[in-house]
Design a protein around this nucleic acid. Structure first.
Lengths: 227, 227
DNA sequence: TTCGGTATTATGGTATACCAACATACCAAA
DNA sequence: TTTGGTATGTTGGTATACCATAATACCGAA
């Protein structure tokens, strides 16, 4: 009996708790605009809606607070976070810094496998955007960037970016799909992909910055002109 | 009766919940190394130590998990997060990006009041470091950076940086106080302060990067050579 | 009709109870 | 001594109870 690979028999059972399910369900409800910015999140109502006890709801709210999706104000309990332009601007600024850095690192480190993965993600993304379903466009873009951050070995930055994206999720869906752009969302991604695949860190970083400059400009228009 | 400043009479009473107190107490216990990386955080034990019910403890743990100070593994409950060099490296990388950007923005935006505030914070910091109490050095450095981020109007980035600093808190105290540096911690801060006060964005950003390069190198030494 | 006082309801904060799952201790048999 | 089976203890996950506070409704007096 060869015991060299004992770890192959290890049972890795990670039970999903109600809390985790509640977090995910609420997060999606917020991101998909089922709950809008400023909406009260009343614990007992959420209990009814989710079919769980208040303990679970409260802990889930703590998690979502930490993600910036929920704000708890004194005397009025948790509400869905609102987003104004100054905050959105900050989020785009931070993303620009972190995503450009990750793209550059990815361009330096990526091998042929990563290139293939990135190109596959781009293809899926292009289909999703052309189909015009905002949530699909957003999810496939997230997957595209995940390839980049994973290859860049920046999982902490990726966690931060994901959270920031959660906070601007409605904006993001709109800006990705926006048709009044000089360069479409997918075309921006294609430029990022091309720069990474020719191992051009500076070009990749610049392509990311271009994309985010564009997205931020659209977000600004959406937030300032249609409050 | 002039009602122009009705808001001056507004009572802004924000009650501090047990949860908030528990979060703060636990966070400090982790940051100050009373709990070390890998230590089990057993709920019922924490209840006894903190003198609160399990509800409060559980919600506090959810918050600290979100900050990255606590990790909950399947089947073994929450433990204090450990820190290895790859993760520390990422944290220093992200800080470098965000802090350099904030310093540059601060250098562009700061007026004489901000300069004075920054210089005052630097003076306090220098005293604290010379006194050799690590927690004081850390807190005063945090205050120094808070002036910068506030002036840069980057409160979201500041939240992120604070959290990241929490995760490397023990390292941070050691690197700030480290005496085997070509340029001391306070001297680095003085360079940052000087660049900001002469309104030199590029110089400020570079001074921050120099500081963080130095700190990361020391952290690397500490983590790799003394595991 | 307006206003003040009181009663009622809603809600968040906190404590406690219950249960399932896992870990550990103990004991008897081989 | 080793091993298997059982009992016991520990612990996290979840549900529920209780309480204080704030908000709202209601009613009577001016």
């Amino acid at each position: 009996m060869d015991n060299t690979h004992d770890t192959d028999l290890r049972i890795e059972h990670s039970p999903t708790t109600l809390r985790e399910l509640a977090v995910e369900r609420l997060r999606n409800a917020i991101i998909s605009a089922r709950f809008n910015g400023g909406d009260r999140l009343v614990e007992r109502t959420l209990c009814d809606q989710l079919g769980v006890s208040r303990s679970v709801v409260r802990e889930a709210i703590r998690v979502l607070e930490a993600e910036g999706l929920v704000e708890t104000m004194p005397r009025s309990g948790p509400v869905v976070a609102t987003l104004d332009w100054p905050r959105a601007r900050q989020i785009y600024d931070i993303r620009r810094l972190l995503e450009a850095d990750a793209a550059a690192a990815c361009a330096r480190k990526a091998d042929a496998k990563v290139h293939a993965r990135l190109q596959a993600a781009l293809a899926v993304l292009e289909v999703a955007v052309s189909e015009g379903v905002a949530s699909r466009a957003r999810d496939t873009t997230t997957a595209f960037y995940e390839v980049i951050f994973t290859a860049a070995e920046n999982d902490i930055a990726w966690e931060i970016v994901k959270r920031l994206n959660g906070r601007i999720s409605r904006l993001r869906a709109l800006t990705l799909a926006s048709t009044n752009r000089r360069i479409s969302g997918p075309a921006h991604m294609a430029r990022i992909c091309a720069a990474i695949c020719r191992s051009d860190p500076a070009g990749a970083a610049q392509a990311v910055r271009d994309h985010l400059d564009d997205a931020a400009e659209i977000a600004h228009t959406l937030l300032i002109e249609a409050p």
